[in-house]
Amino acid sequence: MRRPSFPLWLVSGFLYVFMYAPIVVVIVFSFNVAKHGGPWTGFTTEWYQQLLRPAYSIASELKVVEYREHIKQLELRTLFNKISEILLQPRNDKWSAAINTGILAFASTILATALGTMLGYGLSRYWFPGKKLFSLLMYIPVVIPDIVMAVAMLSFYAMVRDWLGLFELGMTTMIIAHITFQIPFVAIVVRSRLAGMDPAIEEAAHDLGASSWQTFWHVTFPLMLPGVLAGAMLAFTLSLDDFVVSFFTTGPGATTLPILIYSSVKRGITPDINALSTLIVLASVIGTLGVTLLQRPAKPSGG
């Protein structure tokens, strides 16, 4: 490994400053006392407390639920209803946006991971006519601009609504739209994980008496699991950050955090928005770190 020369240091230094300075500004000003933004007037955690206040009340309300009793009585449905009632109770606009973002991210990630994993496995392990074309088409949602994707989804929904009366804009349409752009990311990660696997490993399983199904569950799936999880984290992070597609496919009552932030900043950037953004950055960083850890290459089996 060579040491970089001074000009290289300089260039990379600038690069990092440009990349991270805005984020640092957001984080720093989320601790600013001044209510309507503007110059630094002092340090406070007031905005975080405000944001997280509903979390405290939710925690205290959740504490009261008699879990043991419900589970003993097998009243799982009642228990589920109680918990979701506490979680979904409208508290303030930021909190319900956070809940919406969470529902959207979790629901779309789970479904996109299941579908994307199947797609990645199929593309890596089967041959069918038109496979090459299909592999290329899979990249379209990855490469086309979000705005085009968003407009396409919106007009598609409008068309289907005219014909069938389905797809009233709201959480469901947003979830479907997110799944659409998440699937290829999951599939690509899963497929590359499978491509790095020695094909003899699956043959060995067959040879040792495992049927196709046993081979998949006992060998292939455990080996591709890190890829599946990495794909899921990537999908989750993408959904969490998404503004454009959500903005176009959302309906009344289904505001997400990015949309909320967009509409608030039109009235000026306030420290509580900075605090909210900081929390979102934190969630994304955790997700990305997870992907990086899981994406480390499998330890080689030879040599």
Partner: peptide, 14 residues
């Protein structure tokens, strides 16, 4: 009723 020893060993890494 046959088993194979593979050139790459093909041990299950997990």
């Amino acid at each position: 009723p046959v088993n194979t020893v593979f050139q790459s060993y093909a041990l299950f890494p997990h």
